[in-house]
Design a protein around this nucleic acid. Structure first.
Length: 389
DNA sequence: AATGCGGGGGA
DNA sequence: TCCCCAGCATT
């Protein structure tokens, strides 16, 4: 039951995206002059160290990994020593790095290398990907760094670089987008040939370095200095001013919807408003009285019924009719507002309900007198236009 | 407080 | 096959 396959079926690469001929060469050249060269897991072809670093670098930034890496290889310098180490010792060396399943898989992987590969770490991506904790991208990185194998990586950094350079819209975590990017990654590799091995080391590292140091999420360096990025003159996002919107962010989870009933209590051309507490939604603004709505769904009929009940509590015979419905979108939820109009006719209202809420009348002819939330303002403006009093 | 992050494992 | 999760850092 093979759970993993080294190479997903190569889809017809989107013909609309052209990879410039010198894409790989530019990355290679840039890496050799401007990339990182002194990380503790560089300048070696030891697959053990390269593998260990790649696992540590999954979901974890370079700065956090360096110390753990040094400590780990000092304590367990070879795959054989790791395989022979007690699980406790491995976990202790990992403690603080997070994602502890990585450490458990690391240990399992070392044992598999000993038992199934004679203690020799594989360098073929198709073999690597069968080992615990090694997926397609990590397999390619290990193979490229340890043996110059021509196989593409596609981690978060590379996805960001590709989304921008090639102008690929859509969330890269989405299946279709990721598939396109893998196809692109295959085509973007530097050419096979006599320099392939050295080039693949620089290219693979270069993509990582570009994403980490130049093509950063927040403020890509090209915005201040186009020369900082070797791809800036062929970058779609930079050309079209889309570095802020590419890559497309993860779609926000559907936000919950709440509903409320607001009362438009009319007394001639005055409307009763109350002051909201300083903290919370619309803090310090004047809003319409609201009725707590517990029942879901709460339809328009129920809103009118409830408003009639409130009117009855005011002691006045009155009608209560739905005056408007609108949805206001907050960061965390959508608020469906049903406004019910209640007319108090000529009846005067006591000002001093003793519940600690500031209330007052607001004239529809002077809406600027008080600060009101945008949806409330819309309701009041509607009343001002439609009211016949 | 929300987002990013490679791969595993469960739905 | 798809989606959710892990733990920490960063924004």
């Amino acid at each position: 039951m093979p759970r993993k396959s080294a190479a997903a079926p190569t889809l017809p690469a989107s013909p609309d995206i052209a990879v410039p001929d010198d894409f790989g060469a530019r990355v290679v050249t840039w890496q050799r002059t401007h990339g990182r060269h002194d990380l503790p897991w560089q300048n070696t072809r030891d697959p053990y160290r390269i593998w260990l670093s790649e696992i540590m670098l999954q979901q974890t930034q370079v700065a956090a990994v360096i110390e753990y890496f040094q400590r780990f290889v000092t304590a367990l310098p070879t795959v054989a020593t790791l395989a022979a180490a007690p699980a406790d010792a491995v976990m202790a060396l990992w403690a603080g790095l997070g994602y502890y399943s990585r450490a458990r898989n690391l240990h399992r992987c070392a044992k598999a290398v000993m038992d199934e590969h004679g203690g020799v770490f594989p360098t073929d991506p198709a073999v690597l990907v069968t080992l615990p904790g090694i997926g397609r991208s990590t397999a390619a990185a290990i193979a490229a760094f340890s043996a110059g194998v021509r196989s593409p990586i596609l981690d978060g950094n590379v996805k960001r670089v590709f989304a921008r350079v090639f102008g690929i819209p859509g969330y890269p975590g989405e299946r279709a987008i990721e598939t396109r990017m893998w196809a692109l990654a295959e085509r973007a590799l530097p050419p096979a040939g006599p320099h392939q091995a050295e080039d693949m080391v620089a290219y693979t590292q270069g993509l990582m370095d570009l994403g980490a140091t130049i093509c950063s999420r927040g403020k890509p360096a090209c915005l201040a200095d186009a020369a900082a990025c070797p791809l800036s003159d062929q970058c779609v996002a930079r050309r079209e001013g889309l570095t802020g919107t590419l890559p497309t962010p993860k779609p926000r989870a559907a936000i919950p919807e709440r509903s409320t009933v607001m009362l438009i209590i009319r007394h001639g051309r005055d409307v009763l408003v109350n002051l909201r507490p300083d903290s919370g939604i619309w803090g310090g603004l004047w809003s319409l009285p609201e009725m707590p709505v517990d029942t879901v769904p709460f339809d328009a009929d129920a809103a009118e019924d409830a408003a009639r009940e409130v009117a009855r509590q005011f002691g006045v015979p009155t009608s209560a009719t739905l005056a408007g419905e609108l949805t206001h979108v907050f960061t965390h939820f959508r608020l469906l507002i049903r406004a019910v109009r209640v007319d108090l006719g000529a009846l005067a209202l006591h000002s001093g309900a003793d519940d600690g809420v500031s209330r007052r009348w607001l004239s529809l002819d002077d809406l600027d007198a008080l600060g009101t939330p945008a949806p409330v303002r819309r309701l009041l403006e509607d009343q001002a236009r439609g009211g016949l009093f």
